[in-house]
Protein backbone atom coordinates (compact mmCIF):
# COMPACT_ATOMS: atom_id res chain seq x y z
CA UNK A 1 0.00 0.00 0.00
CA UNK A 2 1.37 3.41 -1.00
CA UNK A 3 1.45 6.38 1.34
CA UNK A 4 -0.76 8.30 -1.11
CA UNK A 5 -3.10 6.61 -3.56
CA UNK A 6 -5.07 8.65 -6.07
CA UNK A 7 -7.51 6.54 -8.08
CA UNK A 8 -9.56 7.53 -11.12
CA UNK A 9 -10.12 11.07 -9.90
CA UNK A 10 -12.45 13.38 -11.82
CA UNK A 11 -12.42 17.03 -10.78
CA UNK A 12 -14.39 19.93 -12.20
CA UNK A 13 -14.33 23.72 -11.96
CA UNK A 14 -17.97 24.50 -12.54
CA UNK A 15 -18.79 22.49 -15.64
CA UNK A 16 -15.16 22.35 -16.87
CA UNK A 17 -13.87 18.80 -16.55
CA UNK A 18 -10.24 19.32 -15.43
CA UNK A 19 -9.06 15.92 -14.17
CA UNK A 20 -10.37 13.06 -16.27
CA UNK A 21 -9.54 9.94 -14.31
CA UNK A 22 -6.11 10.67 -12.81
CA UNK A 23 -4.46 7.86 -10.85
CA UNK A 24 -1.06 8.04 -9.15
CA UNK A 25 0.86 6.74 -6.15
CA UNK A 26 3.52 8.18 -3.88
CA UNK A 27 5.40 5.93 -1.49
CA UNK A 28 6.99 6.81 1.83
CA UNK A 29 10.30 8.72 1.43
CA UNK A 30 9.75 8.96 -2.31
CA UNK A 31 9.91 12.08 -4.48
CA UNK A 32 7.49 11.96 -7.40
CA UNK A 33 7.41 14.64 -10.09
CA UNK A 34 4.17 15.59 -11.78
CA UNK A 35 5.06 16.99 -15.19
CA UNK A 36 3.04 18.62 -17.91
CA UNK A 37 2.35 21.81 -19.79
CA UNK A 38 0.53 24.73 -18.22
CA UNK A 39 -3.15 24.12 -17.66
CA UNK A 40 -3.16 20.32 -17.85
CA UNK A 41 -4.31 19.86 -14.26
CA UNK A 42 -1.15 19.59 -12.12
CA UNK A 43 -2.18 22.20 -9.54
CA UNK A 44 -5.75 20.88 -9.63
CA UNK A 45 -4.38 17.43 -8.74
CA UNK A 46 -2.77 18.92 -5.63
CA UNK A 47 -5.93 20.85 -4.75
CA UNK A 48 -7.92 17.64 -5.18
CA UNK A 49 -5.62 15.69 -2.86
CA UNK A 50 -6.01 18.45 -0.25
CA UNK A 51 -9.80 18.56 -0.80
CA UNK A 52 -9.57 22.26 -1.60
CA UNK A 53 -11.29 21.30 -4.85
CA UNK A 54 -12.94 17.97 -4.02
CA UNK A 55 -13.37 15.45 -6.83
CA UNK A 56 -16.81 14.47 -8.10
CA UNK A 57 -15.60 10.93 -8.60
CA UNK A 58 -12.64 8.83 -7.54
CA UNK A 59 -10.64 8.10 -4.40
CA UNK A 60 -7.80 9.79 -2.57
CA UNK A 61 -6.29 7.64 0.18
CA UNK A 62 -3.55 8.71 2.54
CA UNK A 63 -2.04 5.95 4.70
CA UNK A 64 -5.00 3.85 3.60
CA UNK A 65 -7.58 6.36 4.89
CA UNK A 66 -10.08 7.94 2.51
CA UNK A 67 -9.62 11.71 2.25
CA UNK A 68 -12.53 12.49 -0.08
CA UNK A 69 -15.26 14.14 1.97
CA UNK A 70 -12.88 15.34 4.67
CA UNK A 71 -12.17 19.00 5.35
CA UNK A 72 -8.85 20.37 4.13
CA UNK A 73 -7.71 21.01 7.72
CA UNK A 74 -8.35 17.34 8.51
CA UNK A 75 -6.27 16.25 5.52
CA UNK A 76 -3.50 18.60 6.68
CA UNK A 77 -3.72 17.27 10.25
CA UNK A 78 -3.14 13.76 8.93
CA UNK A 79 0.25 14.87 7.62
CA UNK A 80 -0.19 16.32 4.13
CA UNK A 81 1.57 19.68 3.77
CA UNK A 82 1.22 22.13 0.88
CA UNK A 83 3.78 24.53 -0.55
CA UNK A 84 1.65 26.36 -3.09
CA UNK A 85 2.62 27.85 -6.42
CA UNK A 86 2.56 31.49 -5.36
CA UNK A 87 3.86 30.74 -1.81
CA UNK A 88 0.84 32.38 -0.21
CA UNK A 89 2.60 33.89 2.75
CA UNK A 90 0.55 35.62 5.40
CA UNK A 91 2.16 38.89 4.35
CA UNK A 92 1.13 40.94 7.40
CA UNK A 93 2.38 38.28 9.80
CA UNK A 94 6.05 38.09 10.73
CA UNK A 95 8.30 35.22 9.66
CA UNK A 96 8.01 33.82 13.19
CA UNK A 97 4.21 34.04 13.15
CA UNK A 98 4.03 32.34 9.74
CA UNK A 99 6.01 29.43 11.15
CA UNK A 100 4.02 29.41 14.37
CA UNK A 101 0.75 29.17 12.40
CA UNK A 102 2.02 26.02 10.70
CA UNK A 103 2.98 24.16 13.89
CA UNK A 104 0.19 21.84 15.04
CA UNK A 105 -1.11 22.56 18.55
CA UNK A 106 0.58 20.32 21.07
CA UNK A 107 3.81 20.11 19.05
CA UNK A 108 7.12 21.39 20.38
CA UNK A 109 7.32 25.01 19.17
CA UNK A 110 11.02 25.35 20.12
CA UNK A 111 11.95 22.28 18.11
CA UNK A 112 9.92 23.59 15.17
CA UNK A 113 11.84 26.88 15.14
CA UNK A 114 15.11 25.00 15.45
CA UNK A 115 14.24 22.87 12.40
CA UNK A 116 13.15 25.89 10.36
CA UNK A 117 16.13 28.06 11.26
CA UNK A 118 18.69 25.27 10.89
CA UNK A 119 17.39 24.59 7.39
CA UNK A 120 17.15 28.28 6.45
CA UNK A 121 19.40 30.44 8.68
CA UNK A 122 18.35 33.60 6.81
CA UNK A 123 14.86 33.18 8.25
CA UNK A 124 16.20 33.52 11.79
CA UNK A 125 17.78 36.85 10.82
CA UNK A 126 14.40 37.98 9.42
CA UNK A 127 12.41 36.47 12.28
CA UNK A 128 10.54 39.65 13.21
CA UNK A 129 10.14 40.93 9.66
CA UNK A 130 6.73 40.89 7.95
CA UNK A 131 6.68 38.00 5.48
CA UNK A 132 5.25 40.29 2.80
CA UNK A 133 8.51 42.27 2.77
CA UNK A 134 10.77 39.25 2.12
CA UNK A 135 12.38 38.66 -1.29
CA UNK A 136 10.89 35.97 -3.55
CA UNK A 137 13.61 33.47 -2.61
CA UNK A 138 13.18 34.13 1.11
CA UNK A 139 9.42 33.72 0.77
CA UNK A 140 9.97 30.37 -0.93
CA UNK A 141 12.25 29.32 1.93
CA UNK A 142 9.58 30.35 4.43
CA UNK A 143 6.96 28.41 2.47
CA UNK A 144 9.16 25.28 2.62
CA UNK A 145 9.88 25.91 6.31
CA UNK A 146 6.13 26.04 7.00
CA UNK A 147 5.80 22.66 5.31
CA UNK A 148 8.70 21.30 7.33
CA UNK A 149 7.44 22.28 10.78
CA UNK A 150 3.95 20.89 10.21
CA UNK A 151 4.72 17.32 11.33
CA UNK A 152 4.00 16.28 7.75
CA UNK A 153 4.66 12.90 6.22
CA UNK A 154 4.18 14.25 2.76
CA UNK A 155 4.60 17.59 1.02
CA UNK A 156 2.80 18.75 -2.10
CA UNK A 157 5.25 21.22 -3.64
CA UNK A 158 3.93 23.34 -6.50
CA UNK A 159 6.37 25.19 -8.79
CA UNK A 160 8.99 26.00 -6.14
CA UNK A 161 11.40 27.60 -8.64
CA UNK A 162 8.86 29.84 -10.35
CA UNK A 163 10.03 33.45 -10.64
CA UNK A 164 13.33 32.89 -8.81
CA UNK A 165 16.86 33.83 -9.95
CA UNK A 166 19.04 30.85 -11.01
CA UNK A 167 21.21 30.97 -7.87
CA UNK A 168 18.14 31.02 -5.65
CA UNK A 169 16.67 28.12 -7.64
CA UNK A 170 19.81 26.12 -6.81
CA UNK A 171 19.42 26.96 -3.10
CA UNK A 172 15.75 26.00 -3.13
CA UNK A 173 16.60 22.76 -4.96
CA UNK A 174 19.20 21.96 -2.31
CA UNK A 175 16.71 22.66 0.46
CA UNK A 176 14.08 20.44 -1.17
CA UNK A 177 16.64 17.65 -1.55
CA UNK A 178 17.27 17.84 2.21
CA UNK A 179 13.54 17.94 2.93
CA UNK A 180 12.95 14.89 0.74
CA UNK A 181 15.20 12.84 3.03
CA UNK A 182 12.57 13.24 5.73
CA UNK A 183 9.21 13.28 3.96
CA UNK A 184 7.62 12.06 0.76
CA UNK A 185 7.21 14.75 -1.88
CA UNK A 186 4.85 15.18 -4.82
CA UNK A 187 6.52 17.87 -6.91
CA UNK A 188 5.11 20.01 -9.70
CA UNK A 189 7.96 21.81 -11.45
CA UNK A 190 8.39 23.41 -14.88
CA UNK A 191 12.18 23.33 -14.54
CA UNK A 192 12.63 19.82 -15.91
CA UNK A 193 16.26 19.47 -14.91
CA UNK A 194 15.48 20.38 -11.30
CA UNK A 195 12.43 18.09 -11.23
CA UNK A 196 14.30 15.08 -12.60
CA UNK A 197 17.25 15.69 -10.28
CA UNK A 198 15.02 15.65 -7.23
CA UNK A 199 12.49 12.99 -8.18
CA UNK A 200 12.68 9.20 -8.13
CA UNK A 201 9.69 8.73 -10.40
CA UNK A 202 7.54 10.90 -12.64
CA UNK A 203 4.05 11.14 -14.08
CA UNK A 204 3.19 13.20 -17.14
CA UNK A 205 -0.24 14.80 -17.28
CA UNK A 206 -1.95 15.94 -20.46
CA UNK A 207 -5.53 17.15 -20.79
CA UNK A 208 -6.31 15.96 -17.28
CA UNK A 209 -5.03 12.43 -17.81
CA UNK A 210 -1.82 10.60 -16.94
CA UNK A 211 -0.20 9.88 -20.30
CA UNK A 212 3.18 8.57 -19.16
CA UNK A 213 5.00 7.50 -16.03
CA UNK A 214 8.31 5.97 -15.12
CA UNK A 215 11.61 6.22 -13.25
CA UNK A 216 13.49 9.48 -13.64
CA UNK A 217 16.74 7.49 -13.99
CA UNK A 218 15.44 6.21 -17.31
CA UNK A 219 14.90 9.64 -18.92
CA UNK A 220 16.81 12.86 -19.41
CA UNK A 221 15.36 16.35 -19.79
CA UNK A 222 15.91 16.43 -23.54
CA UNK A 223 14.50 12.99 -24.31
CA UNK A 224 11.78 12.74 -26.94
CA UNK A 225 9.66 10.76 -24.47
CA UNK A 226 9.29 13.84 -22.28
CA UNK A 227 9.49 16.70 -24.76
CA UNK A 228 6.57 15.47 -26.90
CA UNK A 229 4.27 16.02 -23.93
CA UNK A 230 5.97 19.03 -22.43
CA UNK A 231 6.97 21.34 -25.26
CA UNK A 232 4.47 24.02 -26.18
Amino acid sequence: MSLLEVRDVHTYYGESHILEGVSLDVDTDEVVALLGRNGVGKTTTMRTILQLTPPRKGRVRFRGEEMVGKRTSDVAKRGVGWIPEDRRMFGNLTVEENIRAAVPSGSDMGAAFETAFETFPILEERRQQDAGTLSGGQQQMLAIARGLVGDNEMLLVDEPSEGLAPQIVADVGEALARVSNEVAVLLVEQNLRLALNLADRFYVLDHGQVVDEGDTAAVDPGSERLTRHLSA
Partner: peptide
Protein backbone atom coordinates in the same frame (compact mmCIF):
# COMPACT_ATOMS: atom_id res chain seq x y z
CA UNK B 1 -5.01 37.06 11.57
CA UNK B 2 -3.78 34.29 9.28
CA UNK B 3 -7.34 33.40 8.24
CA UNK B 4 -8.14 37.08 7.59
CA UNK B 5 -5.38 37.13 4.98
CA UNK B 6 -5.89 33.73 3.35
CA UNK B 7 -8.42 31.34 4.83
CA UNK B 8 -7.69 28.62 2.25
CA UNK B 9 -3.97 28.58 3.09
CA UNK B 10 -4.75 28.63 6.81
CA UNK B 11 -7.01 25.60 6.33
CA UNK B 12 -4.23 23.83 4.37
CA UNK B 13 -1.93 24.36 7.36
CA UNK B 14 -4.35 22.38 9.50
CA UNK B 15 -6.19 25.33 11.03
Amino acid sequence: RAGSEDDEMAEALGI
